[in-house]
Write a protein that binds this DNA or RNA. Sequence first.
DNA 1: CTGTTAGCGCTTTCAT
DNA 2: ATGAAAGCGCTAACAG
Lengths: 337, 337
Amino acid sequence: MNIREVAQLAKVSTATVSRTINGSSKVTPETAERVRRAIEQLRFYPNTNARALGSGKSSLYGLIISDITNPFFPELVKSFEDIAVQHGQEVLVANTNYDPARMEICVSRMLQRKVDGVAIMTSEMDEKFIDEFNSRGIPLVFLDTGKPQKLISNIVIDYAAGVNAAVEHLIGFGHTSVGFISGPMSLASARIRRKAFVSSLKQKGVRLDPSMIEEGNHRVDGGHDAMARLLSKRIRPTAVLASNDMTAIGALGAIHERGLRVPEDISLAGFDDIEISSFTQPSLTTVKLSRNDVAKVAFRSLYDINVNAGKGGEYRIQPLLVVRRSTGPAPVKPGKR
Amino acid sequence: MNIREVAQLAKVSTATVSRTINGSSKVTPETAERVRRAIEQLRFYPNTNARALGSGKSSLYGLIISDITNPFFPELVKSFEDIAVQHGQEVLVANTNYDPARMEICVSRMLQRKVDGVAIMTSEMDEKFIDEFNSRGIPLVFLDTGKPQKLISNIVIDYAAGVNAAVEHLIGFGHTSVGFISGPMSLASARIRRKAFVSSLKQKGVRLDPSMIEEGNHRVDGGHDAMARLLSKRIRPTAVLASNDMTAIGALGAIHERGLRVPEDISLAGFDDIEISSFTQPSLTTVKLSRNDVAKVAFRSLYDINVNAGKGGEYRIQPLLVVRRSTGPAPVKPGKR
DNA sequence: CTGTTAGCGCTTTCAT
DNA sequence: ATGAAAGCGCTAACAG
């Protein structure tokens, strides 16, 4: 089943069928109608591979993420796909699983499929790969870790502002001993958030005890373990900020296991605002990072370069503090063991 | 950049390059090495579209899911991809968002990309689409809703056994008033789970009060609202089984909002065992449905039909009760208002 | 073991 | 507005 059979049935040339499929304006409505009927009758579906090959355009955009298991990403994927589809483009999602070797495979897949652009939302990306895309004229957009160039855009999240808002909120409640559970230090995005926390505290003139910072892995189990470590210190923090919500959720469990209450004994805040965060017990105060905004900006930046011969740029996104029930006044007596 | 340039540089024919790429055994190791060097030097990536077109094989398997936002699915996607990659195949994931119109788009995408098989994990699938695949010789595998045929396999989850185990567990704790929060009745899979609950109760000789069943939407908010309704009844259940974990998590929030304790005042169990369920407060007793098993069986069933000219079949998967902290002895005085 | 060449299904000039 | 035909990049006979 191919375009020729359709052409025969509709009594036109293959060129006309092709034009009809692509909505060319120079096909008589009557002919177009005839072709459409033939297509329907034969249940014909144009071969995407042949189309891409013939036209030299894949209409495919790559989206590379690091962990599809972190709820942050599915929400991002969904938004990205919605926008792409609205523009008549398809999406190729690839998951690196935080593994550099898999990143190479992902890049390779993108290149082989001749994508028209790639959104790299992983924060870890070898320079050599970037070149691979650049030299082929494939636009790229990064999250936090790119330097804008002709074909490269960068989305910068104002972590400082987000973290600041959270810290301010905590300090406003009288907390003076604020802890932090970071993501894995191997991740640039985790390092950025941590740095933002440290300088925010300094800016507010609050003393930072280095032992109040523990490293997690941006997943639930890591948050749980990190909080457990924090709680077994001689002096424990009365408030803790987590590098992302998954971490905070794990931390919440650890606090409860210890028989402590949130926020009476200890306040807890997260980062991201994934859907589930409003349903934890208590609901989680967190810094919202809109996946929809990120996805929208990411796709637009790529699409614009291709369609309007635009150039790479820098796009800023402001996170927003969402206050819920997991934060409250500092306990009168700081928690000593 | 194409195979011809590589051929020239390596001083061989394009056929030899192609053979080398495809790992054909009839290429002298030396020639192969020369070709590989040329490929590397030119940073050549074979065009997937052309390969698919030339060979007539896409090496692509479709995976249709209903809601990438439900953690159950990303875990399934991940497993499915891992297995596919192990077999040198790629995966095209499509998300219907529970929307029949989008289902049509998904099917169309699959057909246009000439996938070698499709795993339909959505439980809702119009008969006419099935035909579309069948008539093109594309194998299909369903979750719970297919009838095995030449090219069609079906994975049947033994919900009855899973629900039974949960109900037994609850009854063993002395609960006599057991409620149920179902998924949306528009979903076959939700109806199956509900039916399993009803007959399990009947089988155990426990009286079922129809008002003890509320409908959710398989998401957190639906579970929350359904539980709120359950709790405002004149007589409330002392134990509740939810149709999936997301629902249970929402229910948990509603219970706490009401000032009740889990499991002291009310026991709660879920279904699926998504990762986060072991970190809720309290951790959730649930019926584990292994995504990895489902993915493995799904892919294998498709791959086997293609590679070994196998036939469609029926595959059973046993869920397993995972007891955690959200279930316990029934309160001595049933909760009246 | 290697090369030649005819497709694969569609798009896109270039004529008409 | 429509058609004829030359690719697009690769694979797979078929020869040798």
